[in-house]
Write a protein that binds this DNA or RNA. Sequence first.
DNA 1: GAGTGGTCTAGACCACGAC
DNA 2: TCGTGGTCTAGACCACTCT
Lengths: 246, 246
Amino acid sequence: MSTLLNRPLPGQSRYGSLALALRHRILQGEWVPGEVIPAESVLAHSYGVALGTIRQALSLLVEDGVLQRRHGKGTFVTKGVGGASMMRFFRFRGADGSASTTPHSHILSNRLRTATVQEAQAFGLSQGAQVLHIERLRSLASEPCLLETIVLPLPLFSSLAESDTDAWDDLLYPMYQERCGVVIQKAQDSLSFAKLSASQAKRLRLAASHPCVLVERQAYDMAGSCVEIRTTRGDAFSFKYTAQVQ
Amino acid sequence: MSTLLNRPLPGQSRYGSLALALRHRILQGEWVPGEVIPAESVLAHSYGVALGTIRQALSLLVEDGVLQRRHGKGTFVTKGVGGASMMRFFRFRGADGSASTTPHSHILSNRLRTATVQEAQAFGLSQGAQVLHIERLRSLASEPCLLETIVLPLPLFSSLAESDTDAWDDLLYPMYQERCGVVIQKAQDSLSFAKLSASQAKRLRLAASHPCVLVERQAYDMAGSCVEIRTTRGDAFSFKYTAQVQ
DNA sequence: GAGTGGTCTAGACCACGAC
DNA sequence: TCGTGGTCTAGACCACTCT
């Protein structure tokens, strides 16, 4: 019934090994995102450890965002990051006043091309591999607000390459999960400042060389592999972000 | 020997109450920043709880940044946030190439004035109270890079109002601690973009209406009171920041 | 070797959520 | 009422740091 990892790996605590083992079972698809995993007491018994030990293991995975606890209900596999997370960097004021809705998405282009050296390295592909290159405009109340370039590694997302972009959802991450079985687990955003090119400015209905914020994102799946590289541009004067020190 | 909080506060777990009690003793100055607190076993005995319970209480304060554990040595009161934390938002390239040193500080002005309504509210002062208003230019390799406005509540920082600004340190937070007994425990930075005024641009040796990053900081002491409001401006093209999603 | 935090056990009871 | 995670106990032994 139990796996054979009764002895912790060298240099690892027992709860560390248990966390690794559980993470492996999740990645194998034994429990799919959104599903409950067995109760703590069951896991403790099946691994032959005390309750406190399995709880420490679960805590590691909760910290990592792989699991979520719900008091009285159980421990669940995380469903993946939400949708309009890019909006946390901006405060767009709609013509009508309030905002905070999901922006509408319009795909401008969608084509295959050869990966750059950096992209191949990030995705773990061999040089010369193919990627899907998407240009996309996002709008709030018919006002264009964000211009995005999205690069996806290719055999993984090949089902998107052939599909009709008009039928795509406003939120890509849930669509990745439905159509390609890819769950976005975490992402890293790198912010900087630049000026819009003439064509970019036209798309966003701003003046050429208008200042913009550049968000360069790498998104990772549950196994920790990079599966999306995204570059987002938005009006610098709509930028607003809050960070904590310590 | 022990305090009388054997019964947890209503709606609080025992370890939550213990954390509150310990935090209070730290704020009272019973253990100063940098010092060890008693061993876990000693605390557990003196409060009449199990070791695991006091460990949970300490973990809360560690998460909060009030305490730091060091295996084999003890549990220490945090010394306060470091120095050049504003530099994490920028990547200045010095004329010589590398950077990552503490910028030199030059105080431009230092005067008393009446607090604005927002400042009085943030500091918990009555309306019409006095604050210290400081203008300061920070330079890297003789190149001006950051322009700062610093507002401090007044009876707390009155010793700074009368001192010679030439003798001030490059880092203010350690100086607050030495001269005024104020330990900066955490801070919140709010980022946005703006254009430099003519006088601001001149100080930074940039063109008027050049784009800049605006960092609006509120810094808090160990008790959680706001004790500094700072506005920092720097060249938008030197801005670089990385954030994690989930 | 003495003292510290880190790991682990085998129980107990409590608080929450659903049936 | 039952099963879940959350809190708590009273021990044990291990790993790190200093003297």
